[in-house]
Design a protein around this nucleic acid. Structure first.
Length: 426
RNA sequence: GGAUAGGUGGGUGAGUGGCUGAAACCACCGGUUUGCUAAACCGACGCACGGGUAACCCUGUGCCCCGGGUUCGAAUCCCGGCCUAUCCGCCA
């Protein structure tokens, strides 16, 4: 969530940001309500603090008087303290109320888009930051979509997944399974080469972790929940990896922190059935290598560019047609300040598939995480967090299958040969 | 799953209900000394939210796992919860 301090001090910028996210004037009114509630909170706190200070002072006096054996005087003071106590109880209740109201309102405010984020309402308004200029793979008329190719070459089996688990849980087999493993290893190696520390985190997290990265309470229904133990299956490695630095105060020399992790990702995707979800386009379990960075506020946007270049490098090595989108205010995620999406051209489906999303969250995430660092003056300050997929496996596989299909089988990009052990999937 | 022990500042670890936001030691940071490193010595050394017009600074409140309670006063006593460790059982 946004910091209260920022909303108060930079109200104009925040309001402008909300407009970029297409908030109406009526919706934006909540900003003033927040400031008003905070004013009330502050004055109530002052009142409460003063009362408690007085009560503390009297308690000390009573102790002293008792020591001197002046029992009567002490008794008189006790009555006073009792009175203060009832008053402070009431104020405490009011404080808690105000605090809750404030938090509730704060949770409704999305991150403020960076000034370079374009205006817009729908995905059509996203700015193409880099377009694919070379011709798309030239496929024959009888080219198959990846779900057909999967059957033909026994890459993965969705029906079998239904038997074992349910819809949206693919079973990869043979060379398909090997390809999956090859991609994971390739992505991890690339990240490690780029200076990211490899992490293999738990795939289940507790409520605190889910809350700190904002999956709770906002996206409760998106996660699989093991109620017996109150643990959640991670929807992305971002959750456990980012929580590594939860409640930390880092020193300058700890920055930047660069971590990468492969994990399976579990998403309920409730209510998203229908068109465009065939095959691997949208599944409940998929593999992903994530990159996460913690940065000094002055460095975060440079870091964002670095991450974009990293993902782009992977795309190139995989020889896949891709484009990079700079998301507009209306299409950007709630917690992001600036997001680039990577899309890969799926030749047989003739559409772009999102395979990576790289975002800078500024302090929006670190505020909930309580992730701070000690700055040049020794003051604690919220750090900036960023993350991105590098990459999401399932859709990359879909694109690889479709774009590289030949009569002899699926051509494997050169860079993967040493991982797959074969050059053609057939 | 059963039994026991325990949760204090970055770490180790003390703490008779008031003089304890918390001893001591270590680490970190600043300084002095030093040819370098090391050592020694000195000093500072928690977080959050308020107030004093902003900064340096001064000051109030809260926080010794979390939430309640007892008390004029709780890290300290009582109740509930959570977590961790060890042993037993089960087990890849």
């Amino acid at each position: 969530m946004l910091q209260l301090k920022v909303i108060r001090e930079e109200k104009k910028r925040i309001v402008a940001g909300l407009r970029k996210r297409n908030w109406t004037t009526a919706q934006i009114r909540v900003v003033d309500q927040i400031i008003k509630a905070d004013d009330a909170r502050r004055s109530t706190q002052k009142e409460l603090d003063d009362m408690l200070a007085e009560s503390n002072r009297l308690a000390k006096q009573i102790g002293a008087l008792m020591g001197q054996g002046k029992k009567d005087e002490a008794e008189a003071l006790k009555a006073q303290v009792a009175q203060l106590k009832t008053g402070s109880k009431e104020l405490e209740d009011r404080m808690e109320n105000l605090r809750n109201q404030l938090d509730e309102m704060l949770y409704t405010i999305p991150n403020c888009p960076h000034k370079s984020v374009p205006k817009g309402k729908t995905p059509e308004d996203n700015k193409v930051a880099k377009d694919w200029t070379k011709p798309f793979p030239n496929l024959p008329d009888d080219a198959l979509p990846h779900w057909e190719l999967a059957k033909k070459y026994n890459v993965f089996d969705l029906e079998l997944g239904v038997k074992l688990t349910g819809a949206g849980f693919p079973v990869y087999r043979g060379k398909g399974a090997r390809l999956q493993r090859a991609l994971i290893q390739f992505f991890l190696d690339e990240a490690v080469k780029a200076g990211y520390e490899e992490i293999l985190p738990p795939h289940l997290v507790n409520e605190d972790s889910a809350r700190a990265t904002g999956q709770l309470p906002d996206k409760e229904g998106q996660m699989y929940h093991c109620t017996v133990d109150n643990l959640y299956l991670i929807p992305t490695a971002e959750v456990p990896v980012t929580n590594i630095v939860r409640d930390e105060i880092l020193s300058l020399k700890d920055l930047p922190i660069k971590m990468t992790a492969y994990t399976p990702c579990f998403r309920r995707e409730a209510g998203s059935y229908g068109a465009h979800v065939r095959g691997l386009n949208r599944v409940h379990q998929f593999d992903k290598v994530e990159i996460v960075r913690v940065e000094h506020p002055n460095e975060s946007y440079k870091a964002l560019q670095g991450m974009v270049r990293h993902v782009e490098g992977i795309m190139r090595k995989l020889e896949l047609p891709y484009r990079i989108l700079l998301l507009c205010g209306g299409d950007m995620g709630f917690v992001s300040a600036k997001t680039y999406d990577f899309e890969v051209w799926s030749a047989a489906q003739k559409r772009w598939l999102e395979v990576s999303s790289v975002s800078c969250f500024e302090t929006y995430q670190s505020n909930r995480l309580k992730l701070r660092f000690r700055d040049e003056n020794g003051k604690t300050e919220l750090a900036h967090t960023l993350n991105g997929s590098a990459m999401a496996l399932a859709r990359i596989v879909a694109a690889l299958l479709e774009n590289n299909q030949t009569p002899e089988g699926i051509k494997i990009p050169k860079v993967l040969w040493k991982y797959t052990g074969f050059k053609t999937l057939n």
